[in-house]
Design a protein around this nucleic acid. Structure first.
Lengths: 349, 349
DNA sequence: CTGAAAGCGCTTACAG
DNA sequence: CTGAAAGCGCTTACAG
């Protein structure tokens, strides 16, 4: 609790406690507690009297106090880069939904892709004693530092991006298979000079997608040109700005597998700006199937992950881990599906 | 705590407590606590010894225990319909950001527009003792029931949709002004038969937007036809399905102010399906400026609210209320701005 | 400047 | 079936 301020909202009025209910009913606090927890030990009449009194006095259970006494937790922390990314918003919705069904509440945290903020946010969240943490790590995270921070206190599940140096559960999309599907699709349309556009080569998801892309090309007897590997940040603006790099070399690209949908949409802007019509003059694919993918012009051929389902699965995996801390770490790969739309409609030139 | 299950994640190992630190340093627990809270009372040497020991033993502060003892809270609950709506995801990001800066953590809850789920979710969240609640109410919420549920325990702020029967703070977009701007814009392009498309007439935001629309038309000497008021659910599918209702009457609409962007995008689909080109044959505007608005074909003229800024403001207003529970309830109106794009480009027919 | 004691709201053996 | 007592991890008057 070193650096950051702590909230200090005071509850406005005197809380009704088990003591109040016990006194009003002429029973002990223990009995009230047993009623609250649904124990079969209490006599039906006593139970009824207590329950009526709970209602009458508008008693509200203090779960924090119960958690303290029982050494349990009823929350799970969810740390992501940014809710304004629809993929992660859907993921968060799935996590929250599944956690809620199991009686857990979601503690939110966001890092904005900053490893420092990530440490601060996690440091603050652990103090609230979550049963576990679902973490979609910021780029360039320091796995060892995170492992040290959480220690053996809090089990964690890493989502989406591999984190070297930790032994936590891991859930990720099938990046390699997805990129292979996209590449094979472009190959089947007759394309030969296919670039891989976007992402950072040091991120695990980018590496995996490039791997699938490379494998598919080689399987078709094509040796991918280094010039076909263009890096850019996963933002529309940067993607548009780097469009030119696809055409600066002898083996000009005629199609591209993009790192993700955001990059693909940016590339479409960049192409249009050069008078190249995406989908007509240049075929491209995305990854993620964000809502915009179906709406853009042309609509975007992409790989549909199901972020909400992923969120649900992440929650379930984490809760299993919480219940069985001894189990071996698991790596789970979530399937992706190719969705063919207009952006890949360009005939090979 | 009647109906729902409660999470019971156990912390895996023995926690390090103030007692451990105190023993190791040969001081009392009180002294350790004073160090933790940064009190100037402790001698510099003692402080240094204690701090070193805290680090050495990887002590993590148990904020729940402290909150229990101090009768404070360090969390705020945020209840919205659905994170997968980008407008609310941005709003949530803003809330979380601002709360984090003040040392509060966000407890998430979602209702899926169901008033029953909303009661259940809120019931569960209050048990965690949030300092306050930010609530974007589900449609057809029962204000009195909500007020009863939260009682005087927990201050709340209502966002986006008026909730009759409660005396909480309220933050909403300037719906009336926004709809007036959109309508005036269409009028200035020469349109006379302008419909108001979408939303439910019993929701406050729809009423306010219709009001702005009506005012603008009347100010231009046009009496709005009842046939120009078409209701639909705020989904793309329903909007597309109801497109026909704009053309079933004598005074066929030639332009439309839509309840929001989702509805507008659905209307564009419905128009296209009938061979009417949105933006060319039929002018329309949206509301919210979701990301898709800039990307659709044609791009969508709309009203930009700043959901992230709204979220920040909601958090700040709520924390003020938490700190001063006695203050009078406030109503705050957040400004909106007209963004002109292609969808309103149709010349009047 | 430091320590002993009480208490936040709950639960859980242990007696009866 | 019910009650008295201890304790979860922390903080805060109150003495010294």
């Amino acid at each position: 609790m070193t650096t950051h301020k702590s909230g200090t909202g005071r509850s406005s009025r005197k809380q009704v406690t088990v003591t109040d209910i016990a006194q009003a009913c002429g029973v002990s606090r223990a009995t009230v507690s047993l009623v609250l927890r649904g124990s079969p030990l209490v006599h039906a009449d006593t139970r009824a009297r207590v329950e009526a009194e709970l209602k009458r006095q508008r008693y509200v259970y203090n779960r924090a106090a119960a958690n303290l006494r029982r050494q349990t937790s009823s929350s799970v922390a969810l740390v992501i880069n940014d809710l304004s990314n629809p993929f992660f918003a859907e993921f968060a919705a799935g996590v929250d939904e599944a956690l809620g069904e199991e009686g857990f509440v979601t503690l939110l945290g966001s890092t904005g892709e900053s490893p420092q903020r990530q440490l601060a946010v996690l440091g603050s969240l652990v103090e609230h004693g979550p049963a576990g943490i679902i973490l979609s790590p910021a780029e360039h995270s320091d796995g060892a530092a995170l492992q040290r921070l959480l220690g053996a206190h809090t089990p964690a599940l890493v989502f989406n991006r591999a984190l070297p140096g930790v032994d936590w559960d891991f859930l990720a999309l099938d990046n390699e298979h997805g990129a292979r599907l996209a590449t094979e699709h472009l190959l089947s349309l007759g394309h030969r000079r296919i670039a891989f556009f976007g992402g950072h080569a040091d991120s695990s998801s980018c590496q995996q997608r490039r791997q699938g892309y490379t494998d598919a090309l080689r399987a078709a007897g094509i040796e991918p040109s280094p010039e076909w590997l263009v890096e850019c940040s996963p933002t529309r603006v940067d993607a548009a700005a780097r469009t030119g790099e696809l055409f600066e070399h002898a083996r000009e690209a005629g199609a591209a597998v993009c790192y993700n949908d955001t990059v693909a949409l940016g590339l479409m802007l960049g192409l249009s700006a050069r008078g190249i019509r995406p989908g007509a003059d240049f075929a491209l694919t995305g990854f993620d199937d964000i809502t915009e993918a179906a709406l853009s012009t042309p609509s975007l051929t992409t790989l549909a992950a199901q972020p909400r389902a992923c969120g649900r699965q992440a929650a379930e995996l984490l809760l299993q881990r919480v219940r069985d801390p001894g189990a071996l770490p698991r790596r789970v790969i979530a399937p992706v599906k190719l969705v063919v739309r207009g952006s890949s409609g360009a005939a090979a030139m």
